[in-house]
Nucleic acid binder design. Sequence first.
DNA 1: TTTAGTGT
Length: 251
Amino acid sequence: MSWMGVTEWAEPGVLSFTRVMRNDGYLLGWSDVRVGALWVSYELRQSGDRQIGPRPGFRQDWRTLWPVSTTSYSGSGYDRGHLAPNYAMAKVWGEDAQDDSFLMSNMMPQKPALNRQLWQRLEEVVMDHFLPRFGRLQVITGPIYAETRITDLEIDRLLDRVGFVEVPVAFYKIVVVPGDTPLAVAFIMPQDVRGDESLKQFLFSIDEVEAQTGLNFLPRLAASQEADWESVAGVGDWALSQVAELPSRFD
DNA sequence: TTTAGTGT
């Protein structure tokens, strides 16, 4: 589930503490301070024609301690957006993984135009374009929060929350082709999008994602390799031009 | 419905 190590924090601190939750099909780093996941990590492989059942429905995850119920987002204007996607979990890892993808701990508040259009287009490109192209992928995805100043353990900022859950300002997705000479591509997408933008607009380096999250991805990657590799927005030929402007299938 | 909320 986590090629080249589990995501770490660059600088330990109160915001850095996560509990790693192991689910069917994916790992999730849960922050009790943000009341949300900081990252999820999963592997994707080419699978046969696995039958996919209907969406099983959202479920509360009692491991979160702070209660996040299936109705916590009601009336907020935010969607319950998957981090580990329903379709990818169901297709690659099966029904139990699909069920686990509907845990509320795997949800983040996302504006509808992002969740249903731009982000959905990206998830579709990962499954239908990147995965067939490369055969095996490691994906790490999660939220980016507004800059927060911590004074004496007090959060000195008016937080935007849905229930207890802090609302991110953006989301990242890192896609890696594992191997001796790994390939990588990363995206950062803000909450406020139209939905029909080119995916190319949102390409960033892994270094940039690390700067905006405080996380250290792929910590087991050799330092000599990491320096060059993580500084480039897109390593390898992802043929993004073929798919960056495909229309949304919803709305 | 490879997204989701609303209203039932």
